[in-house]
Amino acid sequence: MIKLTLVAGARPNFMKIAPIVHAIQKQKDAGSAISYRLIHTGQHYDKKMSGDFFEQLNIPEPDSNLGGGGGTQAEQTAAIMVAFEKELMENRPDLVIVVGDVTSTLACSIAAKKLVIDVAHVEGGIRSGDLSMPEEINRMVTDSITDHFFTTSEIANANLRKLGFADSQIHFVGNTMIDTLMANMPRFQKPEGELFDQIKEKQYFVMTMHRPANVDQEEKLKEMIEAIVKGTEGLPIIFPVHPRTAKNLQALGINYESLHMTEPLSYLEFNFLVKNAKGVITDSGGITEEASVMNVPCITLRDNTERAETIELGTNELIGTDPKKLPPYLDKLMKGNWKSYQGIPLWDGKTAERIVEKIIQIYS
């Protein structure tokens, strides 16, 4: 019996884990000797992540919630490591699977390796080169002790080879986020409310902003929002707001008729909006992947990205954090001169199946 422990800590992790859970279940139903425990580290907790979230992604409630949320980066890392070590000692697996680049990814891979348990990193090998981002530290440390990498792109494979990893450790499988996207697209649902009843397809923008470089400098934030409002020429901008950003915006008294700040939305609601938008303006990594596959123009307000394939083959443009760089891109988008999705290799909705088949091959 192959025993797996799957780790998720923050909301994007569950979108990456969900298809792996389904693929394991499928193998199990077909008679494979494989089992898993799903561990929620408790790193992020919000009401959108409780029952309805697991229901939306059609995954079972986690076998254990480690309750490792809150505190500084170091406190959170330590709390998760302590709780996860205990989990592993009570339920020792053959392999721990971590996904993405959150604090839980780093903490759980260290705890597993110290107990001499193999670690597989889903989305291993991606790099932004920006050491001011906690996620980059998490990726670098996790990858340095990982046994098997399940990668999303040839760029990630090249990064890992450069670090001296053997080809036998690098498994190019695609992107499980896209598995989730494709599986759920028929189920996307329009959010409820007057605002959402009024918006017309391809006649509004979706915006997300949460990185300190964009939201923690008042003048810059104000300038950025002004440039976005001006460049979108009065079209509605739907902005599901992170609580910290909301606080900063209120303090600045930012208020435009076309800018609609909303509560955070569920996965199915948010992606409904992205799919039908004229364009997306974001500083998030995952959204650039989803927008690209749905062929929706995407502007990324960051100076670097760990997802270069969304620029080379997707609909994403990296424009930096200077508000002055925004107008020509918005002008191009408004005129309909944006590039189209070219197709990213293996982003086909079957990534999780490839991952589980490879695990069975290695551990049987």
Rank of each mutant, 00 (worst) to 15 (best):
T5H: 01
G9W: 01
R11F: 11
P19N: 12
V21G: 06
G31W: 15
S35D: 03
Y36E: 00
D46Q: 00
P60C: 08
S64Y: 12
T72M: 11
Q73D: 14
Q73K: 05
T77W: 04
V82E: 13
F84N: 09
E85C: 15
L88P: 13
E90R: 15
E90A: 15
L95D: 03
V96P: 05
V99G: 07
T103A: 07
A107N: 02
A107S: 15
S109C: 07
I110Y: 10
K113T: 00
K114A: 01
V119D: 01
L131S: 12
I137S: 05
M140H: 01
F150G: 00
T151W: 03
T152C: 13
A158W: 10
N159F: 11
N159C: 03
L163Y: 03
A166R: 10
S168M: 02
N175H: 12
N175S: 09
I178A: 02
T180E: 01
T180D: 01
L181M: 12
M182Y: 06
N184G: 07
P186C: 07
F188A: 07
K190P: 13
P191K: 13
E192A: 15
D197E: 14
D197Y: 14
Y204D: 02
M209V: 04
A213K: 14
A213H: 09
E226C: 04
V229R: 08
G231D: 10
F239S: 00
F239C: 00
P243W: 08
T245E: 05
Q250L: 10
L252Y: 15
S258H: 12
H260W: 11
T262Q: 04
L273Q: 04
T282Y: 03
S284M: 02
I287S: 08
E290H: 06
A291G: 14
S292Y: 00
S292R: 04
M294A: 06
N295I: 13
N295G: 10
N304H: 06
T305F: 11
L313T: 02
G314A: 07
G314K: 07
P323H: 00
K324Q: 04
L326A: 06
P327W: 12
M334C: 05
G336F: 13
G343N: 10
I344Q: 03
A352Y: 02
A352F: 08
R354Y: 14
I362V: 12
S364C: 03
